[in-house]
Structures are given as structure tokens and as C-alpha cells.
Design a protein around this nucleic acid. Structure first.
Lengths: 227, 227, 227, 227
DNA sequence: GATGAATGAGGTTTCATTCAT
DNA sequence: GATGAATGAAACCTCATTCAT
């Protein structure tokens, strides 16, 4: 949880609007071409700065990418955190969660595409490990805590493992994010459901997913056998 | 469902053992370095053939990759198909499914890494669409059919949409595959659960996931409210 | 004494005339501009090959440089070795040595300039150490052995340390080489002697240096006090 | 002997301690990385001044380097000059010389590394010529004068050429300096002598070198034949 | 006097693909 | 069928120097 920074001091010094503009332009490039095919000379040109200055801000292409990624992740995490902090019951929270995920995926699809990118990284163990930690620790802890609380309150089935169930939940949400934003997973959604997710009836997706999760979280194996 | 082939006739003519050897070596390279960083000159050298011959077999690096991917996918699909064809009830099938996924992920992690790779592809729309179709059509149809059947038999809740539930199911299984095989998702599993999936108690994962899916598939929203 | 090679197999495969041509062109570039300012794109262009092929022959600029350096050193070493292997007395050998050094410095000044280059390398410890070993081990051993032999024969003063005296001898010869070939040391020679070494009376330089070395090697401190 | 200055007036105006600090830091960078790899932006940062101010002091990187070099050379020259001005006989002076060289090389190795650096400069003819003149004229003249005087006094052999013998003497001392300070020449010393010069018995080196020079300077070819 | 943001040419290295043999 | 030498565009990154403030 080191919260390292991956930019140089010079980047911190410039004003926020330029900072954001630069990051958005970089995110555009990374999100549309992928890490390897993205070209930092083009990013610099599009941002209206020299490549030399770019390297005054970020030591490597890698650092620029990571900074973009965190920039995107922070935004979503803030929303999720607020939801999970509320006094609502788990299922209410879950519904809010799904709705937020959908909305965010549509309005910030580029960020999700960056996140999807690192999931495919090969052989970059140390950097990858750090990124995972930075990103997933926050998210997992808010899920796990909430579920553990619900368990204590008797709001969910008593035979669930909070960590694994948090993991399953996040998996379902993550795949939904990918379906909204990434070429392959969008096509995949279409093959399974027969509709393009961007023209789909969101309410149906939401209600089915919520209903899926609701039952999964609520009914214990014991109770199930009695039915 | 064009079932196009992405290799030249010359590749078909060589005997199966050389064919498989070549593909396995290519898969090694793609799986360990990712598509962009993989080097087909190195693949040729490792496979003991000249780069010239490589291009007699595959028109482009892309085609080689796709052929590798299909080679890997076919294997898993065959197992899944057999499971889903059986007379077992859905939950029994599901358990077999999960167990097969776990086993396969461990023994053929490289194939999953290739599959993971295409999920991150950016901007290759036409080719991507074809790949999705080839791969996901088969898998989705066996899931959907099975669930639809179970629905007709009254084995599952009556308010589920077979296609969406098949999709959710496949998402959970896919993410599990990634956790077993891909750097990022392995770390992510560790953050959520606290254990390394490769040293984890598989039975616990399986039973919790099965139990999660079981309740999700079985208890309708209507019944839930009564409880 | 590992005798490592710093070129790839592909370089070995090409015929000697092309090999030598390439090396000579590279040596020209390195000798005239120094390692850092030398441009391997220019070397490739001058040699009439593509930069890609250049990298099929040498993995790095560094490796190309080292191969050039060894190419040059081997030539001189062969001559020196022959001289030192003869049955002549040490002083006769020394005179031959000096004459060979002078002649070689004039005809192969570029090689000496490369050798001079590595003497100025900063902070490249591991590579530097290897280069030193490759180059100096050969040269030092032929000097040391010869002097030790002369010592055993009573041809030189009995209070000399063969290794240190070999070292002093080589220092004098090395500096003479530099005077013939390197800008700075040529100017320096002029400042000291008043003449440009390339227009100087070689016989005078040779006789004075030989005489300097002769007395240094012959008269012991003991004998000196008696005079 | 133009004694040009290679810094701007602004540099003269700052107080000596800042002047020296700046030069020492620049010398550190040049000595550890070499001229080409040294980075004057880093020098400025390490010295705690802005790069803009750096360029108010020195017009180019080159000028900074030359100023550093002279700064270092002056110090040694002062010591040498004092020794050579004394009334001692040549051999006594020579011993003092060697001892001073050893001590200075150890305490001011960075300066010698700068001096070594210019010996490897390629293709900078005009500037190089000036540097040589600045540095070597002083040193050569004190050696030559002293030797000529000794020759007049009959303290040294009558068949020596004062300029060439001064040159040989300086060569031996210069190579010793390099052995103490520069990576390559340190390794080279080790190969020849079998010991690391920084852990060596200085007295042995000194006595052998002195003895080498003593005989070289004292016994004429004529006398040698009689022995 | 002092700052430091900004520049951009230039160099090393990679690798998919071609083609003459 | 088989070879592998050859290509060359393209990408990352460095750093001396300028100049507006």
C-alpha cells in the first residue's frame, strides 16, 4: 500500500487543467491502441507539448501509463466507496453498485479499457504486482468489509466466505464493465445474449444480475435443501 | 460461423506431430511474452524451422496467433461439450464444469493466457469479431441450451433468462481461469482471498463457487421474498 | 582468458573480405569520432548494408566496438610475439620492438586510437575488466617471460622486478604509440620535443629511447654507486 | 600560451567557495561518467543552481569541462613546480616527484581522470591544441629546464637529449597516475604486476621506478659498453 | 542576477516480412 | 519444399541549449 507516484515533480507543478488534458489525451491513445502500439510522440504532439517535456513529466512510457491508469481508477473507486459507506442493506447497495458500474462504464469507457489492458500483461511481475496491490486492495477491502458486516447482521447466508463471495461479486461486475467497454467482451456479450450491450435494455441486465447475486448471497445450502 | 482457416495449405500437409510441436512452441512464446512482444523469428528458430518456411505456413504473425488460439480452445471445448451433453442435472454438470475448468487451467495454462490476450486487443475490429464468433458461439450455445433445458424441466428458477444466466455463469468460470493462469488475476485473487490460488485449497473454492451458483440458479426472487 | 566472442554467428558466416571491410569501416568511424560520437547507422550505410543486418552481426554497438578493437590488437600482438620469441638478446629485441611499434603506429594508427579510447572509459567495470584481460594478459606475459629469461641469463641487472620493469617498458612504448596516433598525445610530443612526431627523425627518437631503456635495464643500483 | 579563460565574467564575480563547490561537483560528474555521458543539467541540480545560471557562467558544456580540467591541473602543477625549483640534485628531485605523484593521484584521483579524458578526445583539433598547450607547456618546461641544468652540471649522462628524456620521464609518471586513478589502467597494472595498485606496496613501486629512471638518466651508452 | 520550463534533433535497437537461391 | 540474409520503418529516450519571466 505504498501509494508510490509514477510521475516526476515537474508534472505535479503544472496546473490541474493541463494535467488532466495531458492525461486524457494519453488515455485516449492507450485505450484505443493498447500499451504497446500507443506512441508517446503522438501523445506529446496531440497534447501540444514537446517529447522532451513529456519526459520531464514521466520517466518512461510505463510511468505515463500507470499514472493514466490510476487517474481512471480513482474516479470509480470514489463512487464505489460512497455507496458502500451508506447505511443501506447489502442488496440495496448491490443494486446501486451495478447501476454505478453501468453508468461509469458508459461515461468513462477509456478508463476501463486501460484496466483491461493490465490484466493481459505478461511477464512484468514486479510492476504488475504493485499495480494489483494499488488497485485491488482498495476495492476488495470495501467489498469484504461490507459483506462481513452483512454477515454479522444476519442479512446474508451464514455459510458464505466473505472474501470469496466478494471476489465472485467483483468478478461479475468486472466482466460487465468489460462488456460495456472492450471490443472482445462486447462481442462476447452479443453472442451470449443476442443483443449489443450498448443498445440493450439496461434494466433487464440489471434486474437479472441483481436477482442472480441476491439469491447467491441470501440462500444457504442448508435452506436450499429444505425447499 | 465461417470456420475459416488461418494457415496455408502447406501447413496442412505436414504431419501432426510437427504441426503440434510448432504450435506448442508458438504458444509458449505468445503466452509468455504477449502478442506484441512475441517474436516470430524466435518462434521459428525454437521450432527448428526457417523463418521462410514459417511464412509458407502462415501468411502473417496474426494468422499464426489465431491458429494457436484455436488449437488451445478446441481442447477445452471438447471437455466442456462432453459434460454438458450428459444426462446429469444442472448442478451436477456445474460441479463437473468447475472441476474441469480448474484442472484444465492448471494443465494448460498457456492456452488460457492466449485467450486472455485477445480480450485485451484494441482496434482490430473485423478480425476480433471473427475470433469471438469462432470461440464464443460454441461455448455459449452449450451453456444456453443446457440451461434452457433445465428451465423446461423445472430444475432451475422460473424467472431466469437463460442467455443472461449462461453469460453470468461463464463470466464466473472465465475469471476463475484467469486467476489460475494470468499474472494480474492471480495477484488479484490473492488480494481478495489472502491466499495464492496455486497453493489454495481447491475444494473450498469449488464448494463456495458451486454454492454461490447453486443458490443463484435455483431460488427465484418470488421464493426469496417468502423466506 | 575466456576469449569470448562479441559477434553473432551470422557474422562468422560471411566471407573474410566482407568481414574485414565492415570492420575497417567501423574502425574508421570509431577512430575518428570516438565511441560515443560514432554512429552505427553511418557505419552500416558506409559498409553498404542495412542497419538491420548490422544488428544480425552484432548485438549492440558495444559488441561491434569490442570486435573492432580485438581485430586491431591481434595484428600488433602477432608481430610483437614473433619478436619476443626470437633468440636475440633483450636489447636487440627491444630495438626491434620499438621499430615495430613505430611502423605499426604509422600504418595502423586507427587501431591505436581505438585502444586509446578504452583507456578513457568510465564506469563500465565488468566489460572493461574483460577487455583489459583479453588485451593485456597476452602482451604482459610475453614481456615478463622474456625479461625473466634475460634475468636468468644474467643479461640484465639483478635487482630488477621483471613484472614492474615489463610494466615500465610497456608504458614507454604505449605512450609512444599514442604520440604517433592520438591528437592530444601528438601535440604533447610536440610541446616536449619541439617537433611534430610525424615529421620527426625517427632514428633519433628510437636511439634515445633505446638508450634510455638500455641503461635502465642494465645497470644495477649497486653498480651505479661504484661509478 | 594565451591563457584564455573559458568562463564568463559572471563566474568570476561569485565568491571562491561557491566557485570551488560548483567546479568540484562538475568534476565529480565528468570524472565518473566521462565527458559525453556527463549531464550538465544534473551538475547544475547537484550544485544547487539553475541550469540557466549555469549558462550565465559557462557558454557551453565544453567550456565548463575545460575550466574543471584547468582547476585540477593547477593544483598538481604548483607542487611539481616547487619540487623542481629546489636545489636538490636531479635524483632527489625525481624521488620527490614520484612520491608527490603517488600522493596526489590518491587524494585527487578525479583530476587525473579528467586529464585522462582529454587524451582520448577525437576530432576536436583546435580546442585540443589549446588545451595541450595550456597544460603541457608548463610541465614540460620545468622538466626540460631541470634536466638541461643537470646536464650542464654533469649530474646526468652526457649523451641524453633533455627534451626527449624529459618526455620519457613524464610518460612514466603519467602512466603511473593513470594506474592509480583510471579503471582501465588500474586493471592493466594488476595484470602486469599481479597486485591491485591501491593495495600495493608503494615503496616497492617507487624504489623500482626510481631505480629504473636513475640508471636510464645516469649511465651513458659509452660507459655501458665498458662495463 | 536567477529561474526552470520547454525544445527537438538525433541515436540505438527491434522485428515483421520479402525474395533470391 | 526449404533457407536465412537482408530490409528499413518506427519507437523510445537523452540532453545541450534557449528564453520568457
Amino acid at each position: 500500500m505504498t501509494q508510490k507516484k509514477f510521475y516526476k515533480d515537474a508534472f505535479e507543478r503544472i496546473d490541474d487543467s493541463r494535467k488532466n488534458k495531458l492525461l486524457e489525451i494519453a488515455i485516449d491513445e492507450f485505450a484505443s491502441k493498447g500499451y504497446k502500439n500507443a506512441n508517446i510522440n503522438i501523445i506529446a504532439k496531440n497534447a501540444g507539448i514537446s517529447i522532451g517535456l513529456m519526459y520531464k513529466y514521466f520517466a518512461t512510457k510505463d510511468d505515463l501509463f500507470i499514472t493514466c491508469l490510476k487517474h481512471g481508477m480513482d474516479l470509480l473507486d470514489k463512487s464505489l466507496y460512497e455507496i458502500m459507506q451508506s447505511d443501506d442493506k447489502l442488496l440495496v447497495k448491490t443494486e446501486k453498485l451495478i447501476r454505478t458500474i453501468c453508468a461509469h462504464s458508459k461515461s468513462h469507457s477509456k478508463y476501463i479499457r486501460l484496466y483491461n489492458e493490465i490484466g493481459a500483461e505478461k511477464g512484468a511481475s514486479e510492476r504488475t504486482r504493485m499495480m494489483v496491490e494499488e488497485i485491488e486492495t482498495k476495492r476488495s477491502s470495501i467489498y469484504i468489509t461490507t459483506i462481513a458486516q452483512a454477515l454479522a447482521n444476519g442479512d446474508v447466508r451464514d455459510d458464505l466466505d466473505p472474501r470469496l463471495f466478494a471476489y465472485f461479486l467483483d468478478n461479475l461486475l468486472t466482466m460487465l464493465q468489460f462488456a460495456y467497454t472492450c471490443d472482445y467482451y462486447r462481442e462476447r456479450f452479443m453472442i451470449f445474449t443476442g443483443v449489443d450491450i450498448n443498445e440493450a435494455d439496461d434494466e433487464k441486465i440489471i434486474s437479472q444480475l441483481l436477482s442472480f447475486i441476491e439469491s447467491a448471497f441470501t440462500v444457504s445450502h442448508e435452506e436450499l435443501k429444505k425447499l
